[in-house]
Design a protein around this nucleic acid. Structure first.
Length: 573
DNA sequence: GCCGTTTTCGGCCCGACTGTTTTCAGTCG
């Protein structure tokens, strides 16, 4: 299959790493990193654009040279420039860049003085006390590096957003209770609602001498302190999660909140806009030529001075949000209240933990108008998949419950396995009885991309098929996404009147943000579903909504914002 | 390597903290 955008982005990142080790021009290195980010966030396939001979140079951060490199990668599957670089740098050096505190300059020094060229030689040199002999290094640096080497596995791990949610809320509540504290807010990728976070960024304004830093460092879950200053401190919690705290004056709070929310690329772009207007932008505000602060108290001030609407944090990835804000065409992002029901859940009849009735009541309590009951099919034996007869009996049970229960409509559904040949794991006449049919891949994850794509499209050919559940089948941190030609699948879904799911399970969040936007741009609606396996998980909609917002989705882009009547109509192909 | 409402050359975001220096380089976010 054609080279994916992610692969092209990885090539550029790799080149940037290697150039960095070589001590190349930092701006060239940044150009490669910027390009990698652009490529990663694109909602069209570059291979496709190359095939159609479109002008890649018109993409931001892609100039003549990088456009040629993209074409080379697409056409030959490799890049000569990368091969050349790989052969001139020891392969272990790139790993060394991941050690916190080690940048390209120190790295080169260690290589030149001690012949350090990978993690092993670094550790050996540090243990033997040889690092401290290198100019610019001392005993403390040596000790820190040894410690970082030990923690490397832990520190390079990213956490699921939902994994840190409780802790983040506790920490914010704890800080808000401290005397003299005026405002405490989460920033960083946590606030932007990225599906995973590498650390937490917290912003505080407090009166002078409030002792907020001591309080922060004294938080019960803190394991060690990395740095401690008067305005900024960094700690590591027992879970390995790093937390940064910044203290700023209230007049700067908006500027600081904006700055520490990021993303980095978004911030740099805003600063450049400031420079073009003759201002200086930093975390303390926007300053004119005389050094007078002309904005800073709120984020809205910052954006409005730049001639823009306030941009929701989920959009701040430098993927066109600044242009949209300047032109007043930011999307009106979906909110949880827009959802009218849930289209994917399980009960004890397959692998759920709660009964049909309990799930129905819980959904009604959440204000849902409808809930689709979608057990597994028999091919998925480990999850208690249903045979045809069992499904028919379950449909009867759902009908019966619908008779007696008011305030919510249960939809008869199924999460049917898409078998390796693209057929569905349930007889046609049984599928006909359903209100909604989700198809999902639960086996054969590693098929080649064109085979996998054909398999899915063949499944969608079935007239009963409505929604492709968790399309790539990824489990973050556990299983990679299936190789799929998502553009073809989306086009096929549109032609057939099918939909793709955004599965709200925190480890899935599948579709991801880029694919959500790709769907929106094609006019393909997304089904936002929890795949709840218990009553408590019905509230996972909030995770799905966050992902949808990152994908620029509005109410109209999501299938289950429709009322029951329109939903049922949309499910008739 | 990219980019242009000062510019097709000469810029490229900006500040905090640490550790090693003895006024600052390196790293990080």
């Amino acid at each position: 299959m054609a080279v994916s955008n992610s692969e092209i982005a990885a090539v550029f990142e790799r080149i940037a790493d290697l150039l960095e080790i070589q001590g190349d021009n930092p701006f060239r290195i940044r150009a490669y990193r910027n390009a990698a980010r652009t490529v990663q966030g694109l909602s069209r396939s570059l291979a496709d654009m190359v095939a159609k001979d479109e002008a890649l140079e018109e993409l931001p951060t892609i100039g003549k040279d990088l456009a040629a490199k993209i074409r080379e990668i697409v056409k030959t599957g490799s890049l000569r420039k990368l091969s050349q670089l790989e052969s001139s740098v020891s392969p272990g050096m790139v790993n060394l860049l991941k050690v916190p505190g080690l940048g390209p300059k120190r790295l080169r020094k260690l290589r030149d003085y001690l012949n350090v060229h990978d993690l092993d030689t670094l550790e050996k040199a540090a243990r033997q006390g040889r690092l401290r002999q290198v100019p610019g290094f001392g005993a403390k640096t040596e000790k820190n590096i040894l410690r970082e080497l030990q923690d490397l596995q832990l520190r390079t791990r990213r956490f699921l957003w939902a994994e840190v949610e409780d802790l983040a809320e506790q920490l914010v509540a704890y800080l808000r209770r401290q005397p003299g504290v005026k405002q405490v807010e989460m920033a960083g990728s946590y606030r932007r609602r990225r599906e995973t976070v590498g650390d937490l960024d917290i912003l505080v304004s407090a009166s002078r001498g409030s002792g907020i830093m001591d309080a922060f460092i004294g938080f019960a879950a803190v394991e060690r302190v990395i740095s401690r200053g008067s305005t900024r401190s960094t700690v590591v919690l027992r879970t390995g999660l790093q937390v940064d705290l910044r203290v700023v004056p209230q007049v700067s709070f908006g500027a600081a909140w904006h700055y520490f929310t990021g993303s980095k690329a978004h911030n740099i772009a805003v600063r450049v806009m400031g420079i073009q207007r003759g201002w200086k932008v930093n975390e303390y505000g926007i300053f004119d030529k005389e050094g007078q602060r002309i904005a800073g108290r709120t984020e809205k001030e910052i954006y409005s001075l730049m001639g823009m609407e306030w941009i929701p944090p989920e959009l701040r990835e430098k993927r066109g949000e600044l242009e949209a804000a300047a032109e007043g065409r930011l999307p009106r992002l979906i909110v949880e209240e827009d959802l009218r029901g849930d289209l994917h859940c399980h009960t004890t009849r397959s692998d759920g933990q709660d009964s049909l009735e309990a799930m129905a009541r819980a959904a009604r309590d959440l204000g849902h108008d409808y809930l689709a009951i979608t057990e597994h099919s028999q091919h998925l034996r480990v999850a208690g998949g249903l045979t045809a007869d069992e499904l028919l009996a379950h449909c009867d049970a759902i009908d019966a419950l619908n008779e007696r229960m008011k305030g919510i409509r249960l939809l008869k559904g199924l999460e049917v396995d898409i078998l390796e040949d693209g057929s569905l794991d349930m007889p046609d006449q049984v599928l006909q009885r359903l209100d909604i049919c989700l198809g999902a891949i639960h086996s054969g994850f590693s098929l080649a991309a064109d085979q996998q794509t054909e398999r899915v499209i063949r499944a969608m050919d079935h007239p009963a098929f409505n929604v492709l559940a968790h399309p790539t089948a990824r489990l973050m941190g556990r299983r990679a996404a299936c190789a799929l030609d998502m553009e073809r699948i989306m086009d096929a879904a549109l032609e057939r009147g099918c939909y793709l799911e955004l599965n709200a399970q925190p480890r899935r969040l599948d579709l991801n943000d880029v694919y959500c936007r790709m769907a929106k741009e094609r006019g393909l609606k997304v089904a936002l579903s929890t795949d709840a396996h218990s009553t408590g998980q019905l509230s996972y909609q909030r995770y799905g909504v966050a992902q949808a917002r990152r994908g620029w989705l509005e109410k109209k882009d999501v299938l289950n914002t429709a009322d029951l009547k329109h939903l049922l109509r949309a499910l008739r192909r």
